[in-house]
Design a protein around this nucleic acid. Structure first.
Lengths: 235, 235
DNA sequence: TAGTGGTCTAGACCACGGG
DNA sequence: CCGTGGTCTAGACCACTAT
């Protein structure tokens, strides 16, 4: 049994995420939603408030409520990679695909990212370079059930990250940041010494509760940092 | 004019952040809060729900509501230290002050954090332990012009991070995360080998454009990670 | 000025789970 | 069992602002 406010939330989220409701489009006023769901205004309000908290909806008195989510996100993260951003501006960025294969997911890895073992995935490994210098190794898994178009995508022109952003809307992402020593392969690819510190970002992205992609991006620790600006939470 | 649910939220948040209410401690039941604030249960519920969303409170049917936030400095951030959160639950957390001194800031350091050279600061160095194992080194600068009360604070009972949270409201914070090799001092204090990977969080906090504090927290790379959940940004 | 969201009430019934 | 939170109602008044 799911609650009414949850159903309203889910319905509206789905409409926004699927693109049926475009950014800037007006959402039915609270009174209409109370009739549509046969519930009180407080219940509608609770769902809309949650959508505002997620940044998917904007509400304005006298004007109404509107879809706030941008369609293509400039950066999938609130944490921005300012190091690379700065370097890419006016400098040479390039990348190359190291490997690309359709696989079925082994149990251990499936458990790690919380999907069914044996799921069909596309596994991609890339090297990113800035000014000719290795900047990051990208190891990515794309769930083919969630992104069938990936099966025939070569990523010859567009990196998997950018391609996915345009292909699949996402509703949630989790990031884990770690400092780890470079293993032999990583050290060779990133032109560093084995055991040196690497900064690794692991990101898992969901769409409506279904995993879309899991990626680990490993940077040389001495050439990289993450930065983020926060403001106090409002309540 | 601030709303009732906002006042309740603020009051409870302050009690938790200041350490007056310790993690695991029970919060007054909703009925008591309705009497205390002379409002309806829905209003109390709204405030508590917001606190749950922020991860500061846990609610359990029949049992009550409890303070969920761990005491360590990870507060103030949307980035949560899940590694430490897990360990702190039911385990021993402690810290010790390694040094504490009032200084005038050298030009290089002043420039780095964007304040006037020669500013009077309190410099504090702490070691944080979880289960008796070193978990983090905290190197902190507190601007005495912004926080005069810090001059006489010993931090004997409360770590500087928690103390500052209760003392000074903040309006903006910037975080930078890096992976760096452990130097000799860091390696000794954190019981790791020199050169091993450390995860370092640098945080600068402002109040109305004026720097309040700058802190670098260094963790052992193999015992620590940051995690964060994001939703699509609003553009 | 009128329509919209922001907030609040004083109840109610239910689900859960600790004692 | 029964206290607790989870949810919901059918109103109400107010604040804001587009028109």
């Amino acid at each position: 049994m799911t609650s009414i406010h949850q159903r309203i939330f889910d319905d509206i989220e789905a409409k926004i995420m699927s693109g049926v409701w475009q950014p800037g489009q007006r959402i039915p006023v609270e009174h209409d939603l109370t009739e549509q769901y046969n519930c009180s205004r407080m219940t509608v309000s609770k769902a809309l408030t949650a959508l505002v908290d997620r940044g998917m909806v904007v509400r304005r008195r006298r004007a109404g409520s509107f879809v706030a989510a941008p369609q293509i996100d400039r950066t999938v993260m609130d944490i921005k990679d300012i190091g690379t951003e700065a370097r890419i501006a006016g400098h040479a960025y390039s990348y190359s695909i190291l490997s690309r294969a359709v696989e079925t997911l082994a149990p251990a890895e499936a458990a790690h990212i919380g999907v069914e073992a044996g799921s069909e995935v596309l596994r991609v490994k890339c090297l990113h370079l800035v000014n000719g210098q290795p900047n990051a190794i990208e190891r990515r898994i794309i769930m083919l059930a969630a992104v069938p178009n990936a099966r025939t995508e070569t990523f010859a022109k567009k990196p998997p990250g950018s391609w996915l952003l345009a292909e699949v809307p996402w509703s949630e992402a989790k990031h884990v940041i770690r400092a780890i020593p470079a293993d032999a392969t990583t050290a060779r690819l990133l032109e560093m010494q084995r055991g040196e510190a690497c900064l690794t970002l692991a990101r898992q992205t969901w769409q409506n509760g279904r995993t879309v992609t899991y990626v680990e991006i490993t940077h040389p620790g001495d050439r990289y940092q993450f930065a983020a600006v926060f403001h106090p939470s409002t309540g």
